[in-house]
């Protein structure tokens, strides 16, 4: 019973939130002080990085343990709070006004759990460099990518105004996808997004482009949960709906 009171308590939420903020602040400093440890955090999914570095050198990553513990506690706290209140609400009169905060709780749970899926089952394939007309394998996907054409529009000041790459993906010498990749416009195929990250000119004068291929299986669920959260949040702002939670 004491454990249930702890898990449903708003004070637990308050303290977990505070510790989360302190741990995050410490982490933002630690990331700059230990670049050899944290610089490649985005080069692979979080679970892979954490298994490789988070468990080997625990001292500089202590903040991450705090961050993850507090996130876990906030998730359980929100879930228990919502479970407890939903039972009360459905025994009484169900109104949208009373449900909205718990819709936000459930959306928060959806975001965290979907992110967990991406952090474990996602994939990161950084730095696929291909000269124009050339081919390169795309990590362990079994695809080979060809850079058909690269175009860049440069401003007189020397920075790129726009750049795009026409690419074709092959599997077993058969084209499976073709499209134009530019900044903010990736090419999606079988759950992977192909992103153009950089470009340049090779020593023999041919343009080349560098791509990342990422897969985030939880991304769609995160988007849905985030939109649900925003919608409930917006409705909650109406004065009549804000009196109890």
């Amino acid at each position: 019973m004491a454990l249930w009171r702890f898990l449903t308590s708003l004070k637990t939420c308050a303290w977990a939130g505070l510790v989360f903020c302190v741990a995050g602040a410490a982490g933002s400093v630690a990331m700059g002080r230990f670049p050899e440890l944290f610089a490649d955090m985005d080069a692979q999914v979080f679970a892979g990085w954490f298994a490789r570095k988070g468990l080997v050198d625990p001292a500089p990553t202590l903040w991450l343990y705090g961050l993850l513990s507090c996130t876990g506690l906030l998730v359980v706290n929100a879930a228990c709070c919502t479970f407890e209140r939903l039972v009360q609400i459905f025994r009484g009169t169900v109104t949208m006004r009373r449900l909205l905060p718990h819709v936000m709780h459930l959306a928060f749970l959806g975001v965290v759990l979907s992110h967990l899926v991406s952090a474990v089952y996602g994939d990161r394939i950084p730095g696929v460099a291909i000269p124009q007309g050339g081919f390169a394998p795309v990590g362990g996907t079994g695809w080979v990518m060809r850079l058909d054409r690269f175009d860049a529009v440069m401003a007189p000041e020397g920075y790129p105004k726009d750049f795009s790459a026409t690419v074709t993906l092959f599997r077993d010498r058969t084209p499976v996808a073709r499209g134009v990749v530019r900044t903010n416009e990736p090419l999606f195929h079988e759950g992977y997004g192909i992103y153009i990250k950089n470009f340049g000119t090779s020593p023999w004068g041919a343009p080349y482009a560098v791509f990342d291929a990422n897969r985030d299986p939880g991304a769609t669920a995160i988007l849905v949960a985030s939109l649900l959260f925003s919608a409930a949040n917006l409705l909650y702002l109406f004065p009549a709906r804000r009196n109890d939670a």
Partner: peptide
Amino acid sequence: YYAWGSYWIWTP
């Protein structure tokens, strides 16, 4: 997600 390939990156 559309620009960098992930809705979340680890930066301060």
